[in-house]
């Protein structure tokens, strides 16, 4: 269904805009955000702004980060889930301030300098295959997971998957944040290493592995993708950790050298607006940040379900520490050491 809608969208952008004879303003959005997931939002934007020709380029976080500094012409809007890297770029001065009512009204904890905005609220989850529950009690907390990995080691060997911290910026960020909360995280890393956990570069690969039966258990998946997947793949169960659950936010900013800053402002304003957030809450699993939006996917609703155990990765200067090369090296060294501990 999503695919069909996407095709219509493509037709609309390719045929409709030039045919109507408008000099449509081009708008380039470089995004580390699956097009399929975000399609309803883009469609709504194009309907609201028929004079803007949206060019949404879906890339990996690494590519997006590179293009911020190197693309010529620069993109208009940059969206990425690699929060520390986005933050570093903003600190380097690549972002342009958004001065609008929407920006000013945005919650303080989800923006930085009025330049970069966290516009989604995606919980980090565990996912398991239905088979798992036939053999053992599925994990509901990080401690449960650790216990399972030690007690059911032989059953789970090679059937656990998680992010590769070296190949995925999101994965690295999540592990850094995990390590900030508890030192027992390293026991979990050691246990996963012990169980020969397979490291994947993205959530999709993990979900595909679980559906295919290669993996029984996945750790630190993006809830937004996992929930959509689970709707179409009944063998996959999504579990929001009951002790604490990290929340990742996609961060969007207008590029300093945006060729079309006006259109970029419109786009960002739309992302933050009630209309845009309502689409996010109702038609995507990205979860709306705004407390005044109602729908199945809102931060408020998630809080109601999970309680106060949601820990959004804070959008502030502390993120910059994650991209410090020495700190990263030290973290990776420790990861390797723990993961290979026998």
């Amino acid at each position: 269904m999503i695919a069909r809608r996407l095709r219509t969208l493509a037709f609309a952008t390719l045929l409709l805009a030039p045919a109507s004879g408008w000099a449509a303003i081009p708008l380039v959005v470089e995004a580390a955000l699956d097009r399929e997931v975000v399609a309803p939002l883009l469609e709504a934007f194009e309907q609201a702004h028929p004079d803007i020709a949206l060019d949404f380029r879906d890339r990996s976080t690494l590519e997006v980060d590179e293009r911020i500094a190197e693309a010529d012409p620069a993109p208009d809007v940059v969206i990425s889930s690699a929060m520390p890297w986005q933050m570093a770029r903003v600190n380097e001065g690549y972002a342009r301030r958004l001065d609008s009512a929407e920006a000013r009204g945005w919650p303080e904890w989800a923006k930085w300098r009025d330049e970069v905005f966290g516009f989604t609220f995606e919980p980090i989850v565990m996912a398991y295959r239905l088979d798992l529950s036939r053999h053992m009690m599925p994990p509901a907390t990080h401690a449960d997971l650790h216990t399972l990995l030690t007690e059911q080691l032989e059953l789970l060997r090679g059937r656990v998957t998680t992010y590769s911290p070296s190949r995925s910026g999101v994965g690295y960020t999540l592990f850094q944040q995990d390590a900030r909360y508890t030192t027992r995280f390293w026991d979990l890393v050691a246990a996963m290493g012990n169980a020969d956990a397979v490291l994947e570069a993205n959530t999709r690969a993990m979900l595909e592995g679980i559906s295919e039966g290669r993996y029984w258990l996945g750790y630190n998946l993006l809830g937004s993708y996992a929930m959509v997947w689970a709707q179409e793949h009944p063998e996959v169960i999504v579990q929001v950790p009951q002790d604490y659950s990290l929340v990742m936010m996609r961060m969007a900013f207008i590029h300093r050298d945006a060729p079309n800053p006006g259109a970029a402002r419109e786009f960002l304003d739309f992302l933050l607006s009630r209309d845009g957030q309502r689409v996010i809450a109702g038609e995507t699993p990205l979860f709306s940040v705004r407390p005044d939006v109602i729908g199945p996917y809102t931060a408020q609703r998630l809080r109601d379900q999970v309680g106060e155990r949601l820990y959004p990765i804070p959008i502030n200067a502390s993120l910059l520490a994650f991209v410090d090369p020495q700190r990263r090296d030290a973290f990776m060294a420790r990861w390797q050491r723990e993961f290979e501990r026998r």
Binding site: R180, N316, A317, S318, L319, L320, A321, D324, Q326, R327, A330
Partner: peptide, 10 residues
């Protein structure tokens, strides 16, 4: 070797 403390940045 310095592991930049996040607090310092804040």
């Amino acid at each position: 070797v310095v592991e930049i403390p996040a607090a310092a940045l804040q």
